[in-house]
Design a protein around this nucleic acid. Structure first.
Lengths: 140, 140
DNA sequence: CCGTATCCTTGATGATACTG
DNA sequence: CAGTATCATCAAGGATACGG
């Protein structure tokens, strides 16, 4: 790895600039706006293991309200990440499954989870240390 | 890839369950809570190209307020993702750079950006189509 | 079962003014 | 320059009730 450019602590990835409105958008905000909310990834994770009915999802995802589950699966459907299938039974029966695009997301989600597990101890230590040195601070 | 288990549309990654409080946490919410906010990744992207002073960051990241930049870099510092260095000049001069942990994040961010660029067209099409079929709907 | 319709609360963010 | 301090706003999410 080249360290000729100054200041990079260690191997960072090459990244396009991303903060300017003129510059071609790097796409990062797009993804985060789509899956950075409280529930979307959890639904994706659950659907990664196969189709699920509405109630199954709700039972699998602790704490999600009926309203938020509805909104979340609707958004996934709208974005083409999940497919909604209605069976004309009575009472109604609906299942959701990932589309190809949605399934491709799971690899990203796995990368997130792996990174988290790999670094969570370091981060916890850093926080403790920081909070120790800044007792008054309100950053959280 | 094994397709013996039913219902997986296409190659989804193997993912631990994640929504239950009893189950060992998969870590996904951890990462998203850390970088899923409006500005953190943009700061990380900028710092990926080398150390930056406070004003440099603010100029590089369009639309960020002084307050939010402060909060964002503080959080990154607290989590051990960025290092803050104060030079005792007058007026004050401060720079930020990624730590090793922070630099490791850039690879994840790159994966996010890549995924977004790869699928944004599909997603845009899907949305258009959905909105076309659901004119009244308010999902956005 | 699978939603929709309301109402309400809160946290994240923005705007602005001031300081070492 | 690099912040801190306040106040205002707004959208995400939660609670609850009702309906096909």
């Amino acid at each position: 790895m080249s360290l000729t450019h100054t200041g990079v602590t260690t191997g960072a990835a090459e990244l396009e600039p991303c903060g300017q409105p003129d510059h071609p958008d790097c796409g990062i905000r797009d993804v985060l706006d789509r899956v950075g909310d409280k529930w979307s990834v959890l639904v994706v994770v659950e659907l990664a293991n196969g189709p699920r009915r509405f109630r199954e999802l709700q039972r699998a995802i602790d704490g999600i309200s009926q309203r938020m589950l509805t909104l979340t699966v609707r958004r996934l459907e709208r974005d083409g990440l999940a497919l909604r299938t209605v069976y004309p039974t009575v009472p109604a029966q609906v299942d959701y499954r990932l589309t190809e695009t949605g399934a491709s997301l799971t690899h990203l989600v796995k990368a997130l989870a792996d990174w988290s597990l790999e670094h969570r101890a370091d981060i916890a230590r850093s926080r403790e240390s920081y909070d120790n040195d800044h007792p008054e601070n309100e950053i959280r």
